[in-house]
């Protein structure tokens, strides 16, 4: 019972880790490269949650100073994740460009097919 209550208290962390593990699974188990990149994005967004969830204060407000409010959520994770999102789209675009070039060179975006072909040669 106590463990269950702890789990409900940490529901946000459980889901964050579920997303992380799902992203890891897609990267490890799937051989299509576009899908791998999307799995990597899911992993990345789970890290955003891992940073943002502890920064929230119940009853707090967005960190924009106004005399009407006294309690603000933690602004530091927001700053770190803001830059991470934009870097994330940069890496995604670079990965997609590599996938396009691989498709032009090998005619496939499947990891296993490319490994097979390299073994045959």
């Amino acid at each position: 019972m106590e463990a269950l209550l702890a789990l409900v208290d940490h529901y946000n962390f459980v889901i964050t880790i579920f997303l992380m593990v799902a992203g890891l699974y897609v990267v490890v188990a799937r051989s299509n490269m576009v899908k791998k990149l999307i799995g990597l994005s899911i992993f990345q967004t789970s890290v955003y949650l891992l940073y943002l969830e502890p920064g929230k204060i119940i009853g707090g407000t967005a960190p924009i100073v106004d005399p009407k409010f006294t309690l603000y959520s933690n602004p530091l994770p927001h700053v770190l994740i803001l830059t991470a999102i934009v870097v994330g789209v940069g890496t995604l675009a670079l990965g997609l460009a590599l996938v396009v070039r691989i498709h032009e060179a090998y005619g496939t975006t499947d990891d296993d097919d490319i490994a097979d072909r390299n073994r045959d040669e």
């Binding site: 934009v86 789209v89 940069g90 675009a93 997609l96 460009a97 396009v100």
Partner: peptide, 16 residues
């Protein structure tokens, strides 16, 4: 930088 990079990325993919 961000706006022009995003547009340049889009152009690169579309022109290909």
């Amino acid at each position: 930088t961000v706006s022009s990079t995003m547009v340049a990325l889009f152009y690169a993919f579309v022109e290909r």
